[in-house]
Amino acid sequence: MANPHKTSAELEEYVVKDAPPTVYYVPAFITEAEEAHLLQQVYRAPKPKWTQLSGRRLQNWGGLPNPKGMLAEKLPDWLLTYTEKVSALGAFAGKTANHVLVNEYRPEEGIMPHEDGPLYHPTVTTISLGSPTLLDFYRPVDQTQTGVLQTEESRYMLSLLLQRQSLLIVQGEMYEHYLHGIRGVAMDTLTEHVANLSLAGGHVGEVVPRTTRVSLTIRHVPKICHTNLLLGRK
């Protein structure tokens, strides 16, 4: 059986060693010009492409994953360039990314701790545009500790600093067993709990203001529906 977490050797220098396996953080994965081009394409998307959620808005590209399988849609060329670039690193064990969520977070917007679930190959990759942010990780609620109050604060484990133009790859134990979220704050204060501080060029005590951030969450959906199956044909 193929290793679902096998990546190219060139990623080894980007392993975040102070986090559980496995996290890769690649600073300056894209150039400033590429970042500007991507942001331009994101905001050129037609208004109906945006979905407004509590705390953020998003665009969905590639299809809508569901337990019965995703009816795949062709990705636009401006995204294909980067899904292929990320896939070439072996992030999806030789498979090619086929799904992208574009999330926009304004200052003081975030997302509650959550898991990405079993619909995807057990890897998530993220290119950050426009603004840095902290991505926080949490232990799941321990169902055996019924008499203990388990808050977000008590389950907090570590953070990752995501700078503009960087690539984050999360897989293995880190993907499958921990929750991740973004606090709804206007600025982040870096602490010793930021596991990739040196890789991301930060230092303890630094205050990092947030502006509007756009993330490209690039994934592989292994279960694809074909039109004839959806219509009940054989």
Rank of each mutant, 00 (worst) to 15 (best):
R210L: 07
S154A: 10
T31D: 06
D188C: 00
N196R: 07
E176L: 14
R164H: 11
H5M: 09
F29A: 11
A19W: 12
T189A: 06
K49W: 12
S87D: 14
L179V: 02
L64E: 08
V194W: 02
L179T: 03
T125E: 02
L38E: 02
S166H: 08
E32L: 14
T212M: 06
E35R: 02
T83R: 07
S215D: 04
W50I: 06
S154E: 11
E34P: 07
M70F: 03
R183T: 14
G172R: 00
V42L: 09
M1E: 15
I218E: 07
P4N: 10
G94S: 02
L231D: 06
A88E: 10
P222H: 12
L229F: 14
E108L: 04
A2C: 09
F29P: 07
D136K: 00
T96P: 03
S166W: 10
N103A: 04
E35G: 02
V26I: 15
Y82C: 01
V23R: 08
G69M: 05
S54C: 00
E176S: 15
G94D: 05
E206I: 00
S87T: 13
K47F: 02
T81Q: 14
H114T: 04
P132C: 01
T123G: 02
L179I: 02
N66R: 13
N103E: 00
M157C: 14
M187R: 15
E192T: 08
T83M: 06
K95N: 15
Q163R: 15
R219P: 05
V102H: 01
K223R: 11
F92A: 10
L79G: 08
V15A: 12
L179G: 00
V194I: 11
Y120S: 12
Q145P: 00
S159L: 05
L230I: 08
P48I: 01
V194L: 02
K68V: 10
K6D: 12
C225W: 10
P122M: 13
T211I: 10
